[in-house]
Design a protein around this nucleic acid. Structure first.
Length: 441
RNA sequence: GCCCCCAUGGUGUAACGGUUAGCACGCGAGCCUUUCACGCUCGAAGCGGGAGUUCGACUCUCCCUGGGGGUACCA
């Protein structure tokens, strides 16, 4: 099995493209196949080095590798010209000056379901004869056979008047030269496939097996875009998702294995089959990604989580904070808002202070908790718990009547990791300092 | 307009002619509980519509409707 992922570098790698890359990669890595990366950069304006770098970057972060050096389609221009000349010589292609208007005029005369047929002329763009007779059949692993009648097709333009070739021609030639056996790509290419089939046919070559993946949509069913939140791989990374969780989630958009939801990358490689890919378009549901990401976050060792958090936040020494935050965060981005107070001081949440600290008795409770913590023997979570529970006991109040004031005193808000762990992580001196700051002189 | 693809709860999917239509996210209720989470229990929610085929259709066929893609001397 020889596969390829062929993005055009027109911007960030979208999650749809990421899923296409993932499926190709799963197939190659799961079945001893090969995966080529081809950059389709023949659109001179949109293909910038920065955009190419973004693609590499996204694939690297996702953990998807490829075999050999990436192929840049633009550098294959000489080869394309050579094949084009061959087609012209053999009469399978011809020069034509017909414009889009001419094509429309042709359809006005012959019916809008009649494909345009041109006359060979001395110059102009190059068109391929679509011919007549047997229809073109796209053998698609996912959707079965799709038939395209030649009569419906216009003779496709395969090269501009200046000799530069067009996408559908370049793709077919490149896939052929690379010995690609399976083309796995988005469904938006299905309608283009007959044009590519025409190229294979004109070259007397056999076409690869195709698999057109259902498209990915935003939550509203429309095309995925920035306003749907994280729509590109880099945005996913910035939003604090783990690459392994993203791989898992993306694999599930359009594919599944029984009732399984959480599937490791190893399992995905083993279980993924093109035949099981769904035919319906799927919507990107960030809530489910968040949930799944939370599963992966909780599965990490505290050391590993700390390492990821350190890279994500750019801060150091997060091990203890990571440990006590682990079951409360779903993404790496959730960490700092929850536990940043351990490092940067209490957060400023006037509402929390008002509701918790300015209640009757709160100061007395806090003063008593302070004394208990000051006198505690040791300062690990157990010692802290013993000290604070003693205060609860002594005052005959509910646990939260003691814990919440302490929490707001040290964190500035009503939400934090477990109070005993938080206090212990903060340390005795800092805890007392923060409580004193609330109690005032 | 023309060509093509698709159609199970809000979302992702399972069922491959006979099931009380399963699972997961999300949502609601409850339990747990120091906040928030996690976890557990329970619950609401679905086969787009119409004709066929068949003893029997979510499953097969056709039509309609709805969504999507293509229709460039873009990729």
């Amino acid at each position: 099995m020889r596969l390829r992922f062929a993005p055009s570098p027109t911007g960030a790698l979208h999650i749809g493209g990421a899923r296409t890359a993932l499926y190709n990669w799963l197939l190659a890595r799961g079945g001893g196949g090969e995966l080529l990366l081809r950059i389709e950069d023949t659109d001179r304006e949109r293909s910038t080095p920065e955009n190419v770098e973004q693609i590499f970057d996204a694939l690297r972060w996702l953990g998807l590798d490829w075999d050999g050096d990436p192929v840049f389609q633009s550098r294959r221009a000489p080869r394309h010209a050579e094949v084009l000349a061959r087609l012209l010589d053999s009469g399978r292609a011809y020069h034509s000056n017909a414009t889009a208007q001419d094509v429309r005029a042709f359809k006005d005369r012959h019916g809008s379901d009649k494909g345009f047929r041109g006359e060979p002329e001395p110059g102009g763009a190059v068109r391929l004869h679509a011919g007549e007779g047997e229809p073109l059949r796209v053998a698609d692993v996912i959707r079965g056979e799709t038939v395209f009648a030649r009569e419906h097709m216009d003779d496709p333009v395969i090269a501009r008047a200046d000799g530069s070739v067009l996408y559908n021609f370049a793709v077919a030639v490149d896939d052929l030269d690379a010995g690609i056996t399976h083309v796995v790509r988005g469904e938006d290419h299905l309608s283009n496939t007959p044009k590519q089939l025409l190229v294979f046919e004109a070259l007397g070559a056999q076409a690869p097996v195709y698999a057109h993946l259902p498209l990915l949509h935003g939550p509203d069913g429309k095309k995925l875009s920035k306003r749907h939140g994280a729509a590109s791989v880099q945005e996913l990374r910035d939003a604090g998702y783990l690459p392994e969780a993203v791989r898992n989630y993306l694999a599930l958009l359009g594919w599944g294995h029984g009732d399984d939801t959480k599937l490791s990358t190893d399992e995905l490689q083993r279980l993924f089959r093109l035949e099981d890919v769904s035919r319906n378009p799927a919507r990107f549901d960030e809530q489910k990604l968040r949930w799944l990401n939370g599963l992966y976050v909780r599965e990490l060792s505290p050391r590993e989580l700390a390492a990821r958090l350190e890279e994500f936040t750019g801060r150091a020494n997060l091990l203890e904070a990571a440990r006590i935050s682990q079951e409360k965060i779903q993404t790496l981005a959730d960490f700092w808002p929850l536990s940043g107070f351990l490092f940067d001081g209490p957060r400023d949440d006037p509402q929390a202070r008002e509701r918790v600290l300015e209640r009757n008795g709160a100061h007395d409770v806090l003063a008593q908790a302070r004394e208990a913590l000051a006198a505690a023997e040791g300062f690990d979570p157990d010692a802290v718990e013993a000290a604070l529970r003693a205060v609860v006991e002594a005052r005959g109040v509910k646990p939260k009547d003691v814990f919440q004031p302490v929490r707001v005193a040290i964190a500035g808000t009503t939400v934090s990791p477990g109070i005993f762990e938080s206090v212990a992580t903060l340390g005795r001196a800092e805890t007392l300092r923060r409580i004193d700051a609330v109690l005032g002189p």
